[in-house]
Amino acid sequence: MLETSMFSEIGLNHYLVLSALLFTIGMAGILLRRNLIVVLMSIELMLNAVNISFVAFSKYNMNSEGQVMVFFVMTIAAAEAAVGLAIIVSIFKRFKEVNIRFFEHLKG
């Protein structure tokens, strides 16, 4: 299935590449951005990259299980976002700070 030509039609590979790109962008976002909210968004981006990958595989494997998984992932991503935001909010309330560089007291 990977032999499908890249340019003739939109195939699995395109989705996978897209997913990989999104995953990488998400990762890069985490690595590079200083703002915790943006980092949180980057995490969501990574999870969404996973979702794309699941859906694409689901479609090309003719297996709907993948799509079910996406629901799970989305749900949990939401929970995760909630938890993450909760932590960030509590931090912001106390320290008025969402810069990631602020959190470097634990080290060594």
Partner: peptide
């Protein structure tokens, strides 16, 4: 182990 979580993320990647 310099305390910067982005650094840690970088180790992971």
């Amino acid at each position: 182990q310099n305390g910067n979580m982005q650094q840690y993320a970088m180790y992971v990647s």
